[in-house]
Design a protein around this nucleic acid. Structure first.
Lengths: 143, 143
DNA sequence: TATTAAATAATAATAAGTATTGTTTAGAGC
DNA sequence: GCTCTAAACAATACTTATTATTATTTAATA
């Protein structure tokens, strides 16, 4: 389901590869975090100074629908990522930080569970682990 | 972690039980779906006609922080629930519908995985299964 | 039942996201 | 390479979602 993805292979998709779109995808691939719309906008503007924020919004929505990027919501903030290696999230309840967590074993287990669920055609799965990150733990100890 | 929860037992918490707050919690417990802020507002207004929307927002945020309710974001829409039996979500990519999915076995497996993760103190876990629901499948076949 | 911090309604303000419109451009066919 | 056209664009207006402010009310405790 999640094959390797390059601008070349995605080029097969039924869409135009404008500079703006390419820069947004590139930015997301080079920034392995989970940037917000504003962070993406600021980042892309360094290369395309005249890009409009509406274009960023439209492309993020479009690319999500196409399945080229993923949307993650934490603490009411919408973030995006372009990591298509199957993975899960470690989310800190306190600071909202998201770390990726890869595990083939977990992924396989979940897809097996998914296969047994009736009335829903599952094609992907994601587990969010919630808790306290190292930094916040440290901070609370010293506070 | 997720004990049974009643207004009585939650009364131990460090907070005031105003009519507005109680009605919001009650509404969420009686409506097993995953209502939006507006749906909660409309529902609660039937009993408390003069309640302010800001109060609904403030309480939803407050109760989330207290851990009495949970926030779920799908397709950019924020929804809430008060189901504290450990469970997972089946999310339809097309219509955005969310169904709850309970499985002790999956929950136990995930918490075992969580216990092995370093650098993060995990206290809860939730898996989202994404795909196409029965209704949308039907619709697409007949469309 | 008096006190007080917390919660409230009302409303103003801000932030997030979408729609519109006239202009530009990527990609397909020649 | 040149032309054509649907798709994408910038700019901006607009709508919706969310938060902040402030004066008033209320739950919980003494």
């Amino acid at each position: 389901m999640f094959g390797e993805m390059t601008l070349e292979t995605t080029g097969k998709a039924d869409m135009k590869y404008t500079n703006q779109r390419v820069e947004i995808i590139t930015f997301l691939r080079e920034h392995k975090g989970h940037p917000t719309v504003d962070e993406i906008y600021d980042g892309v503007r360094k290369k395309l100074t005249r890009i409009s924020k509406a274009t960023v919004y439209k492309n993020l929505k479009f690319l999500s629908e196409k399945g080229l990027i993923e949307e993650v919501n934490v603490k009411g903030v919408t973030r995006f990522e372009a990591n298509f290696v199957p993975h899960h999230h470690l989310i800190c309840r306190e600071c909202g930080k998201i770390e990726d967590f890869e595990s083939d074993e977990l992924f396989d287990y979940l897809m097996k569970v998914a296969g047994d669920i009736e009335g829903f055609n599952i094609d992907s799965v994601n587990t969010n682990f919630y808790g306290e990150c190292k930094d916040c733990k440290e901070k609370n100890r010293n506070g």
